[in-house]
């Protein structure tokens, strides 16, 4: 059940089915979830909301998860970033930009949840 103190997770993916399934799962786990369909949506989201964790696809229709991570870091954002998807060099670049990544797709939602909980525990 979502509460007023629920942590906020931004789920970014250009794949509507995947995005909505992940978002739905995380909502059922009690998080407040914002969905963004691409890089520009995600940038707007972090500008207008306090986001605790970003779960982003590497490849999106209008940019990449790396672009988003870089944007967040440049803005001084505190959000922790989890990248999903498997591309060559992804792991290498993700190591510099993100707390965790990549989770290879398809991944089990529980795997993502475990990762989010682990990251939040590290932060608190």
């Amino acid at each position: 059940m979502q509460t007023e103190t629920a942590e906020t997770i931004l789920v970014v993916s250009s794949d509507a089915l995947q995005r909505s399934a992940v978002a739905k799962y995380l909502r059922e786990c009690g998080y407040r979830v914002i969905e963004a369909t691409g890089l520009e949506d995600a940038k707007l989201s972090v500008e207008h909301h306090t986001v605790d964790v970003i779960v982003s696809d590497v490849a999106m229709r209008d940019g990449s998860g790396f672009d988003l991570s870089t944007h967040v870091r440049k803005q001084g954002g505190e959000a922790q970033v989890v990248l999903t998807q498997s591309l060559s060099r992804t792991a290498e670049v993700a190591g510099d930009l993100c707390e965790q990544g990549p989770l290879d797709q398809p991944y089990h939602p529980q795997q993502l949840l475990d990762e989010i909980r682990r990251l939040r525990a590290m932060r608190s």
Binding site: A16, L17, R19, S20, K24, E35, T37, G38, D41
Partner: peptide, 17 residues
């Protein structure tokens, strides 16, 4: 339950699925 999309093209893809 809300499924969000940012274009009519995406919406039609979902319906076709």
């Amino acid at each position: 339950e809300v499924i969000e999309v940012s274009s009519a093209d995406e919406a039609m893809d979902l319906l076709r699925y």
